[in-house]
């Protein structure tokens, strides 16, 4: 073997070593996140269209025809670092077999997810705009007219008091009624660069919480600011982590 050959052989080895260090992946630096929201009523999956729930503070039983809400301004945190999901406006609806709504975010630039923050509702800027962003759509069921903005939380159904059926309509909006939710994510929810976050949405809280609602006395909430704020304070903590 000539000296030249030996040297170039050595050079090749050095190159290979450098290449190894540079190109072979270290532990993954991003995380794929799945947030699953499940609609429940008193701990059991929500049932639509059946008079099976008691009026929390009055006579009769109610049924749910529609329940949905906007979830927006999603932020994932890891220690002091945070990742703000851009244009995150999700319409969470549960009219499917497993009463769940799933948000998937791939390659979130955080190595671990320790917390999650979002609004129930929409920020004032987006609420006052007619631009379609995310699931915000001014031609949708969640839009009041453009002078008012969006419904944040929508509940429609009916109350049955001794066979007399009457409608229930709770539409809560107005920028002041967006409520922030923040959830801690236990370390064992992250495995191999994937984080599973399970959230429980307890619809019962909307009527049975800080304020206890008699649906017969208050069958509808729309534009009355005091009523709307009361329901907003009720839904403020309807979402919690479930593991």
């Amino acid at each position: 073997m000539s000296r030249l050959q030996a040297m170039s052989g050595f050079g090749l080895l050095v190159l290979l070593a450098i290449g190894w260090i540079v190109f072979v992946p270290g532990p993954k630096r991003t995380t794929d996140v799945t947030v699953t929201l499940r609609a429940t009523m008193n701990g059991a999956p929500l049932t639509f269209d059946q008079f099976m729930y008691d009026n929390p503070a009055g006579p009769g039983a109610f049924r749910v025809r529609d329940f949905r809400f906007y979830l927006s301004n999603l932020v994932l945190t890891s220690g002091d670092e945070e990742f703000v999901e851009p244009d995150s406006y999700y319409l969470a609806r549960f009219d499917n077999a497993d009463r769940s709504y799933v948000i998937t975010l791939s390659d979130v630039p955080l190595r671990r997810i320790e917390g999650l923050r979002f609004l129930i509702g929409v920020d004032p800027d987006a609420n006052g705009s007619i631009l379609a962003r995310g699931d915000l759509d001014p031609n949708s069921q969640m839009a009041w007219n453009w002078e008012v903005g969006y419904k944040f939380v929508l509940f429609e159904g009916a109350l049955d008091v001794d066979g007399a059926i009457s409608p229930l309509v709770y539409h809560v909006g107005f920028s002041e009624n967006a409520r922030e939710v923040s959830v801690l994510v236990p370390a064992d929810m992250t495995r191999a660069g994937e984080t599973q976050i399970n959230l429980d949405v307890d619809l019962a809280k909307l009527f049975d919480n800080a304020a206890l609602i008699d649906m017969q006395a208050l069958p509808t909430v729309k534009f009355d600011r005091t009523d709307a704020r009361m329901l907003a304070d009720n839904y403020a903590d309807m979402i919690s982590a479930s593991y």
Binding site: L91, D137, P138, N139, S140, Q141, A143, N145, W146
Partner: peptide, 10 residues
């Protein structure tokens, strides 16, 4: 709907 006046898409 307010602009289209049709039914909703979703």
């Amino acid at each position: 709907s307010q602009f289209l006046t049709s039914g909703f898409r979703d």
